[in-house]
Design a protein around this nucleic acid. Structure first.
Lengths: 210, 210
DNA sequence: AATGATATATACCGACAAGTAGAGTTATTT
DNA sequence: AAATAACTCTACTTGTCGGTATATATCATT
């Protein structure tokens, strides 16, 4: 209680024991890339040890077990990597939200600076029974994206940006469905321009409806 | 060469040794369902032994190794399960092809009589290095679906069913993208009516373009 | 310099993976 | 009935998995 005030020292530099031989956030970044590219089941802890340049006990000491490490990687992914989503959600009008999201998705999913596709889609799409916990967590994340769109479109409806009898649930689901499909395409080798063409096709047909 | 004429006996019933204690096609059917639901990596041969009611050496004797078994399951899936695809491709007009495919997909992907989603999508979407052969094969299968649509739309163009400046590649890619996204949705628990709503949304916007 | 705290390194654990050996069983053929 | 072909069964091998015990190295503190 009162005795942890000492921890509020703003610069607790001196750490007492032997210092860490690796940069924690850098290691997590690398782990994210491996999980992103190979999925949860496709990645072994030994793989990570090799690729991260850190030995196993240190890995477990810093990040817990494999599932916790994956969770932390997912959190990093959502907060720092797939930022185009929140940028799209903050767009002015509903149609701008849609366009920004889909175009942003085409670019993000094929960005050569990181693995292709969405980690939330391909991280654990199907799995054995021992992996179903991660499977479920990713389903929740996907549902959350959909719910964000649904809410955004609901408020858009009240502002008159959207036809009042728009089915916002289906519209949100359509968008995330397209996104998830684009993710599969990206992991299958689709290029950025191919995905942009697909998006343009979807958007063309869309602009006729409002 | 000439000495295998005897094998052309239309009813080679008498098989010499001890008869099989299981129905081969029935076992393959069950194996398909397991792979379909759990993916390649998520399914272990021991799982299959338990669920198929057949012991391991018999399984290996009849179907080769795990990869060959998976390949045979995929073949069964494509020829006997996802038949709605070829039905859609054989539809009269291009717009009927699109509608039949998407509506058929919504029903197929959520059909309660078999695992949800597409085996070709979730069978090995991402994987470690030792599974990449299967990964690649499924990519080829997905590309083949796309190519079938592209060809169908090309002939539709010559028949005047489709606007002559239609980008048939992108149209085909759009359709398969939507399909793959719907597959992800189905494995995430989306219901048939939800997917049908998504499809209707896509079709509405589509019908404006021709 | 000695102590205590923390991190690293090697080597290991039990569980389970894919795949197989070899003995036993059940049929047809001669 | 004897021989042989084909299948089944138990038990095993080898390798890898996630995870850890133990010993050692490196720092701040005293």
């Amino acid at each position: 209680m009162a005795n942890n005030i000492q921890n509020e020292n703003p610069t607790p530099k001196k750490t007492r024991g032997r210092p860490l031989a690796f940069d924690e956030s850098q290691v997590l970044e690398k782990a994210l890339h491996v999980f992103w590219a190979r999925g949860y089941e496709g990645t072994s802890m030994s793989d990570l040890v090799d690729l991260l340049g850190i030995n196993k006990p240190s890995l477990y000491a810093k990040f817990g077990n494999k599932e916790e490490l994956f969770d932390k990687a997912v959190e990093l992914y959502l907060t720092k990597k797939s930022v185009f989503v929140s940028e799209a959600l903050n767009a002015e009008t509903a149609s701008q939200v849609i366009e920004k999201f889909l175009i942003g998705a085409a670019k993000f999913l094929t960005d050569p600076s990181h693995p292709s596709g969405s980690m939330i889609v391909q991280g654990a799409l199907s799995c054995g029974e021992n992996t179903s916990a991660i499977h479920q967590k990713l389903i929740v994340k996907r549902a959350f994206l959909e719910a964000q769109f649904k809410e955004r479109f609901d408020t858009a409806k009240t502002k008159g940006e959207l036809n009042p009898n728009t089915d916002t649930i289906s519209l949100a689901k359509y968008l995330t469905t397209l996104y998830q499909g684009m993710s599969v395409q990206a992991t299958s080798g689709a290029t950025q321009s191919e995905l942009v063409d697909v998006v343009k096709l979807a958007l063309e047909n869309f602009s006729a409806s409002h």
